[in-house]
């Protein structure tokens, strides 16, 4: 049993209220509550509903961090209400907390949102095992511990949507699948039993695919199951190259271009990378490049800095490369 003393402190909550059937605009309700160090965010939602306003609406079910229903935002941070302790929230944000749904523009009633886009994208990555299964097998289909480890805990995802609605790329590019769908795609791509050939190609498509990930780590930071969706996105990139399904486009050339540049200079040749990635489309960068040139921000090819002991780098590239494009 924990010997930590239970402490209580006053916290001011600003709670998002909206009923799409009745309200023209959302509004915020203020509550000031004594919060104990033992409480989780869901306890606060319950107390508001039970003690103050029975019409306050939110999704909840298991109360054990497994159903994924109760994800909301506290001061803009996605959080699974039944798992997140109030102490952590107070440590992060102080004693004035704003409680909002995961996505305000998708709000239906208070904390309840229309998660249709999340589920559509999740479904679009074939989030299940594609395999010829013998319905009456004579022996078990064993997966070795080593192979199971390859999933990197992607199978722990509870589809709560915390990462999806924390992702800035999802907000801007409505086609972008988002971190949860990619983690699901990875979970099955990494499964040795899976034989789906289309999934990896689909998640590498330019419009919706992994290449639009902005690498901000917002998903990794909020995931209540510590799945690290960013890592899964990186692995999907790597898989596309390893399995030879990476298309020759600006995104893949941008990744491969680093290797060419490092081999030649040790350092990155910035201009060379843009040229290699864009090809003839480099012309669209000329106006900005000219501005930069005038300010002494462009190094000419003959002045490219090189790393010392470049031969070491070249030798290591030769001996340590694991992929070919």
């Amino acid at each position: 049993m924990s010997t930590n003393k239970i402490t209580t402190q006053k916290v001011n909550f600003k709670v998002f209220r909206f009923n799409a059937d009745e309200d023209y605009l959302p509004y915020y309700e203020d509550y000031s509550l004594d919060v104990t160090s033992e409480e989780v965010v869901l306890d606060i939602l319950n107390r508001i509903k039970w003690d103050y306003d029975g019409s306050f609406s939110y999704r909840r079910s298991c109360r054990h961090g497994i159903c994924g229903a109760c994800a909301i935002k506290v001061n803009g941070r996605s959080t699974l209400a039944c798992k997140e302790s109030m102490s952590t929230m107070i440590e992060y944000f102080g004693n004035d907390l704003t409680i909002e749904p995961l996505s305000i523009k998708r709000a239906v009633k208070d904390m309840i949102i229309d998660k249709a886009d999340f589920w559509e994208k999740h479904a679009a990555v074939t989030p299940y095992l594609v395999a010829d299964i013998d319905e009456t097998p004579m022996s078990e289909n064993l997966v070795s511990p080593h192979d199971a480890e390859e999933l990197n805990e992607a199978d722990l995802c509870i589809q709560c949507g915390a990462c999806h609605y924390a992702c800035p790329a999802v907000e801007i590019n409505s086609d972008f699948f988002g971190p949860a769908a990619f983690a699901a795609a990875y979970r099955f791509e990494a499964d040795v039993r899976d034989s789906d050939g289309e999934r990896l190609i689909n998640v590498n498509e330019e419009k919706q695919g992994v290449w639009d990930c902005v690498k901000c780590f917002e998903c990794t930071e909020v995931c209540p199951k510590h799945i690290n969706p960013f890592e899964k996105i990186t692995k999907l990139h790597q898989m596309a190259f390893k399995k030879g399904v990476a298309k020759n486009n600006v995104a893949t050339r941008h990744a491969v271009g680093f290797l060419h540049s490092i081999r030649k200079h040790g350092m990155l040749d910035e201009g060379g990378l843009v040229l290699y990635s864009e090809g003839p489309a480099i012309v669209k960068h000329i106006p900005v490049a000219l501005q930069m040139f005038r300010k002494g921000k462009i190094v000419m090819p003959w002045n490219m800095p090189k790393s010392g002991n470049l031969d070491e780098i070249q030798k290591l590239i030769k001996s340590s490369s694991t992929v070919k494009f």
């Binding site: 680093f258 290797l259 694991t322 992929v323």
Partner: peptide, 15 residues
Amino acid sequence: SCCGASHLQDYDDFL
């Protein structure tokens, strides 16, 4: 050398 800028990492993790 260049750190890879998290793009080389998308291509060849071990390298």
